[in-house]
C-alpha cells in the first residue's frame, strides 16, 4: 500500500535532482531545490522520522530557498548600464563538456553501489544500527523523562544534551560570521578597517 506513495515520490525526487543538474537558469534551479527538499521531507515522513521531515520542510524548502534567492538577487551575472535585469543575467554560462565529470560520477556511483551489497536490507530489524546502542533505551526513556513520549526530543535534549549545546553554539557562530561578512557598516563610523574595504569597493 505504501509503495503507491513511495514510488512516485522517489521518481519525482530523482527527476527533480536531474532537472536541477541540467537547468541553466539559476532562479529555476533554486526553486527546484525547494521542491527537492519538500519531496525528501515527504519521504522522511514515510520513513517514520516526523521530526526530521518537519525540519527539512521548514529549513530546506523555506529558509534555504529564501536565502538563495536573496543571494541570487545580489549577484547578477553581467551589469548593464541601464534597464532592468533580465532573466539572462541569472543564467549560468554554457558549461564545458560534461563527459569527464560524468565519467567520474559514474565510477564513484558504481563503487558505492558495489559497497551496498554488504549492507543490511531496508527495514531489517536486526541490522547493526538497530541492535548496537541497546534498544531498550527507548522503553526506558519514558520513566526517565517523566513520561514524555517523544524519544527524539528526549535523546536530543537530555541524553545527548551536550552535543546539542555544541550545535547551538555552531549556529550562533555561523550567525555571527554572516553578520561580520555582510553587515552594512553605517552605524559603526569608528572602525577603520571596514571603512577601507568599502573605500576600495566604491
Amino acid at each position: 500500500m505504501m509503495d503507491f506513495i513511495v514510488i512516485p515520490i522517489l521518481a519525482l525526487l530523482a527527476a527533480t535532482a536531474v532537472t536541477v543538474a541540467r537547468i541553466r537558469n539559476l532562479w529555476a534551479a533554486v526553486m527546484f531545490t525547494g521542491i527537492y527538499s519538500f519531496l525528501s521531507a515527504s519521504w522522511m515522513l514515510i520513513l517514520d522520522a516526523p521530526d526530521v521531515a518537519f525540519t527539512e520542510a521548514a529549513v530546506g524548502a523555506g529558509i534555504t530557498t529564501i536565502l538563495m534567492l536573496a543571494t541570487l538577487s545580489l549577484t547578477p551575472r553581467r551589469h548593464r548600464k541601464s534597464g532592468r535585469l533580465s532573466s539572462e543575467d541569472f543564467e549560468e554560462r554554457p558549461s564545458k563538456s560534461p563527459l569527464f565529470p560524468l565519467l567520474i560520477v559514474t565510477i564513484t556511483g558504481c563503487a558505492l553501489v558495489y559497497g551496498t551489497f554488504d549492507m543490511p536490507h531496508f527495514g531489517d530489524p536486526n541490522a547493526p544500527i538497530q541492535v548496537y546502542p541497546q534498544p531498550s533505551f527507548v522503553e526506558k526513556s519514558q520513566p526517565d523523562m517523566h513520561g514524555l513520549p517523544n524519544v527524539v526530543t528526549a535523546v536530543l535534549a537530555s541524553y545527548r544534551g551536550y552535543d546539542t549545546l555544541g550545535e547551538t553554539a555552531v549556529i550562533f557562530t555561523a550567525g555571527i560570521a554572516v553578520l561580520l561578512i555582510l553587515r552594512k557598516n553605517t552605524d559603526d563610523q569608528g572602525s577603520s578597517e571596514s571603512q577601507s574595504v568599502t573605500g576600495e569597493n566604491a
Partner: peptide, 15 residues
C-alpha cells in the same frame, strides 16, 4: 533516515 527505518515500525513517539 532510511537506515533507521524498521519494517512495520512507527514513529518513535511512545503511546
Amino acid at each position: 533516515i532510511t537506515m533507521g527505518k524498521v519494517t512495520h515500525g512507527t514513529a518513535p513517539i511512545l503511546r
